[in-house]
Structures are given as C-alpha cells and as structure tokens.
Design a binder for these strands. Structure first.
Lengths: 351, 351
DNA sequence: AGGTACTGTGGGAGCGCTCCCACAAGTGAT
DNA sequence: ATCACTTGTGGGAGCGCTCCCACAGTACCT
C-alpha cells in the first residue's frame, strides 16, 4: 500500500502496462525489452527504454515470479550451526566464490542455516514451497536426508563433495585423488622412503579418494604399497594422535607421514614430538586442507590446498545450467555434471 | 511414511482452489484458515486442515506476495565488505539475535553486503523493486546515503546506532552514555584519582555519548572534569597509541585510562608498557566492546560489553512493528522508536 | 502470380493468491 | 413479527507479470 517510485505518477509504482502506453507499444513488447529478447527492433527498444527511464519503472518481482514460475533466487544451505559457519574459513571462501559468480546475474543468494532440527524443518517447508530455483549444498554428511528431499522435490541442486562415485546430484569436488597422489609424490621426491598415511573417515568419499591417490602415488613410483602403513583416522586431532601412535609402534622405521587433514596432522605431530622424532629431520609431515592450522603449526605444515573459492564459482555455474535445463526438458550432459577442480601442494617447512 | 506432503513427480503443486474443493468449502475460507483468521468455525477449520494435509498443500509465495503486496522478507544490510563481516564477532552476534527473533515468525532474512559501489548499486535497485518489507541497517557511517534512500522509498527500516540524537529512522542502540559512566565509576571505585579518556571518532554519535558519560561519571563523584585528560582517538590502534603518548606527556600523573574501544586500549597499552607503566599497578585500563581483543590482551582487559545479540532481537521487534504500522496508516509512537539497551562492565585484571 | 519463411508486434489468457462485498443463518432486543 | 447486529461463508475482481497465438509486413523463393 506504500506510495513510492522515484517519479511515479500519483505515488503508485508504474506498471508494465503504463510503460507500454507511454511508449506507444503493447504489453508484450515492453516485456520483451525488459527481458532482453532479441526479437525487438532497435527503434522500439529505444522508445521503451526511454519510457522505462521516464517513469522510473522497476518490474514487480512477485508478479514476475508468479507468471513465470520462477523465483530468481537460489539458496546456499549450510547444514551446520551458525557458529561453525563463522569459525571456518571454508564457508567464507565458498561464499566469496559463490557471491562473485552470482553477481554477474540477476539471481539472488539466500543463506540458510540448517544446523538444528527446527531449522531443518523450516528449510523443508521452504523448499516444499519452491521458494528458490535451486540449492547449493555444502558440507553434507553421508546420512543426510536433504539431498534426497531435493531430488524428490525436483529442485535443481549442486553438492560440494559428492557422497560417492555414484552421486546422483550434480557435484563439485576437488581432486582428492590427485591431492593424495601429490602429497606422496612430494614426499618421495624429497627422498623419503617409507611414507605412512593417516586416513580420514572412510565413509567420507573424499577421504577414500585420498587413500586411493596415496596408493597410486606409491605405485607409480615403483613402490609396493605396504598396508601396515595405512592407518584410519576420523578427521579429529585425537584420532590423528591415536593413528600416529599405532603407526610408530607398527613401523618405527617410517620417515614420512601424509595425514588426510591438517587437524589430524596436528595430532600426529604431537605424538611424533613425544616420541622424540624431529620434524622434518626424522619424519616429514604433510597435511590436507591448507587451513589456518597448517600455517600456524610449529613447524609450518606442508599441506594440500583445495580451491574453495573456485569451487563456489563452479557450483553456481553448474547450478545455473541445471536450472536452465530443467525448464525445457533437455537431456542433460551427464559427463559435465561432476566438476573436479585441481588441488595444489603448498610447501612449508614440515617436509 | 504416509502419503502426506511431497507430491513427488515434479507434478503440479496443489492450489488453494483444489484444497477448497477437497474440503468442500470456498476459496476465501481456505485462505482464512491458512492465514490464521479467527473468523472460521472449528469444524470448518479442521476440514480445511485435513485437506491441506492430504494434498500436501503449500501456499505459493509469489501469488501471495502479488495479491497482498508484501514479501515476507526483510534484509540485513551490511555496508561493509564481506571480509569484515566474517572477521568481526559484532556481526555474527547480531545475526544470531536477529535470526533467533525472526525464527518465531514466517519472515525470511536476507543477508546483503553493500561494501563495494557495485554492490550498493545492486542494493539500490533491489530496494527500488521493493523486494523486502523492511531493512535492518547495521554499522552505518555518518555520511552514508542509504538511510535517506530508505526514507524516500518509504521502506520501514531500523538502524543500529543512531547517527545523532535526532535520528529519523527507528533505531536501536546500547547505552553509550551509561557505558562511559560505568567505566569511570568503576575506576574511581577502585581508588583511581586521575582518569583519562581516549575518545572514538567524535563524528560517531556513540563515541560522543561515551565522552558525555565519562564527564558525568566524574561530575557525579564530585570531580572536576579536567579537559586535558580527554584526548581524541579514531577507533584505531595507532590512534590509541598517539592519544596515549600525548596524554602521558601532558599528564604524567594519570593513574587510569578509559579507552573508547578495545582496539584503542590495545594501542594505549603498548605505549604504557614502553613508558614503563605497569598495568594495572601504575595505570588501570578499561576498554569498550568486550571484543576478543579484550579477553586475549595481556593483562586481560576490563571492558564495557554491549548486548549485541539482544540489540539484534530488539531491531527485529521494532522493524516488525514498523512494518505492521506502515500498512494501515497508523500514527507511530515516536517515543518507542528508539530503543536503548543497557551495557555491562566486564571486570578483568587490567583494572 | 502464389507459396513459404521469417521478423516484429499486440493482446488474451492465465499464474495462485488476498481482499472485500454480498449474503445466509443465528441471536437478542424491541 | 421486525429490526439490528454478529458470525461464518462463497466467490468476483483484481494484483502485474509472462507466455503464446495471431497476424501484418517484408523477403525470397518457385
């Protein structure tokens, strides 16, 4: 009921119809102009644009959404409590990439936390109401029902970190396999002979792929993979400590450790210290994630960096594709629906 | 799982009309039920609710927005680059309060950064299109054109930290006057005699109020305010350093300093150290904001805490009021449009 | 000459709601 | 019995767009 508009007649916001009247054209033509259709002559376009300018016309979004059955909004869903969101640079990096890519478009980004049960219920309603055209899902746990819900509702969605090699949702991932391999190759190249690996939780697909990369790195260099050198961790510091303890007992001769995450590397470092092994002199250590921990560790930790910001950009790109495709029923290019971005080894003094 | 909700198969979503048919009532009645109108008999309500459940009906938001001329969304506008948003706990605290209060309602929160010129242009368009019912403005600089734009567009808005005592927008603030006074009273109560004050930028209203509180604290205790003890800073660490240097030159006999922000207190601390003054033995130090800096300073800094989360809640409360009032033209209760929340002194070892 | 294919344009028919007026039925006072 | 309310209900009339069909005009074939 508000009255507004920079130069609105009588305070009401001008409608498309009024613009059409002023420009001396039909409604359809104005619609074509403001939506950038090419099927409009130059002269007409100019006339309409002038009328838009004079009246200070701004399209009514609700009417648009209703008529076109779209919302021009996508949601970034964070299935974590807010505190983690602010604490971990992963999310802000991701948000930066997403925001940058999205600013090229008219799309709007909604940030939705779904950490608590209550928030999740709200989210489910939200999605059921189709209030967004698509969803970006970051940091999803293996048993999360959210991806399936999205599938059922047929809402385009892109997930960061596929849940398996048979991920049904469009996904973006970093090259965990390549990252694992890079870590091993780096250690071997620096003259290490016995490289152990502390894995992440193996029900996380990415962790599994890092193990695969580790194996491949050894094999490609002509080494035989010694299973005793692989010890499962769980992404926690304590898990890293336990794993490192076992590895030292089992293979005291090891001279390098590749940990599946910086946090586990930190746990491993403590155990190595206590055992009197110097880093990197006696044992070289490589982590994964290139997080703040890596930079602040003593000694600074060599780590495999994932291009999080680029992953964010890639997610948007894929999602916009999916959204565009989902309107006319176009067969989707399945090969292009799983992007994998390269990792990079950041060398510091721990190796 | 029973067959409610989630019509699978991308099929059409049920409309209000279909719910009405199923429940054997008219469209208007269903609308009344889903909007919680009291003018519906118990029996009818139950029938409609059953139909809603059976069909898995969810209102179409766009249609609602178009017909009712509202969006059920409000924007939290942060006129800062994203990096600051993530770096400062101020914003996450605020967001927590806002989110908590908002989760009681059907309203949706949009987080909008307006740090760059480009982002600001986008925001202006966004607001012109009336895509939100109201706006929360945090951390606004004195010369920011945003508040005026909001006024012109007649969009309800609440600002955190009024720009002056004559703020036109609805505002929420912490009691800067009381906070300043508390700091001084605390220092005097602990036996200090000569309390200096490093102010914030005096074109920031809140900083000015802290100075007023400082004066009042001294006066109320029977002290004469010595203007030589007041030195302007600019909220930066370097500014704190400069101010402290001057104060020491001018009044070497001072035995307490109240800094208008923790960051400036940190600068002051360095200068005091270099001058060989011990904290708190020789000089007691009190900051403002109770930020992470305060907790991590050596020695931990006594500081005045602002109830940021509660401020967020209060902002939502006021905004929702404004939005409700702006629909029927009700005269607003001007007295209630400027909330001031109490501050609290957090005592640590620096005083 | 007619046929075929475009390009550019106007406007009808909705999209799914809310608002509001009309009206039936019930209640109590006259 | 009438009147004056109140309560509950149905449904018409939009809200401001997009989609799509119809059709005039032009161009280039047979």
């Amino acid at each position: 009921m508000a009255s507004h508009g920079t130069r609105g007649r009588g305070g009401r916001r001008p409608t498309l119809e009024e613009v059409a009247a002023r420009a001396g054209v039909g409604r359809g033509t104005v619609s074509r102009v403001i939506n950038g259709s090419p099927r409009v002559s130059e002269a007409t376009r100019a006339a309409v644009e002038a009328a838009v300018e004079e009246l200070g016309y701004v399209p009514n979004n609700a009417a648009r959404a209703l008529a076109a059955n779209r919302t021009d909004a996508i949601a970034l869903v964070v299935p974590e409590p807010e505190t983690r969101f602010f604490a971990e640079p992963y999310f802000s990096d991701m948000l930066r990439g997403v925001g940058a890519e999205l600013s090229e478009t008219e799309m709007q980004l909604l940030l939705i936390f779904a950490g608590s049960d209550r928030e999740r219920r709200r989210l489910a309603e939200y999605l059921a109401a189709h209030r967004v055209d698509g969803v970006l899902l970051v940091s999803v746990h293996a048993d999360d029902p959210l991806p399936d819900l999205l599938g059922q509702l047929e809402i385009p969605a892109v997930i960061s970190g596929p849940r398996s090699s048979a991920e049904t949702l469009t996904s973006v991932d970093s090259d965990n396999f390549g990252g694992g391999r890079q870590a091993v190759e780096h250690l071997l190249a620096r003259g290490r002979r016995t490289v152990a690996h502390i894995t992440g939780r193996l029900d996380v697909y990415g962790a599994q792929r890092r193990v695969d990369g580790y194996r491949e790195g050894l094999r490609a260099a002509g080494h035989v993979v010694d299973e005793r050198l692989i010890e499962p961790g769980d992404f926690t510091e304590e898990g890293g400590r336990r794993a490192m303890t076992r590895l030292l007992e089992r293979c005291p001769e090891l001279d390098a450790v590749f940990a599946g995450s910086d946090v586990m590397a930190s746990g491993a470092r403590q155990v190595l210290r206590e055992a009197g092994r110097r880093i990197p002199d006696d044992v070289a250590l490589v982590g994964y994630d290139d997080s703040a921990i890596a930079r602040h560790m003593d000694p600074p930790l060599t780590s495999v960096r994932q291009p999080i910001e680029e992953m964010g950009r890639a997610m948007i790109e894929l999602l916009l594709n999916d959204i565009a495709d989902s309107r006319p029923a176009v067969s989707r290019d399945l090969e292009r629906r799983h992007a994998v971005l390269p990792t990079q080894l950041v060398h510091r003094t721990s190796s």
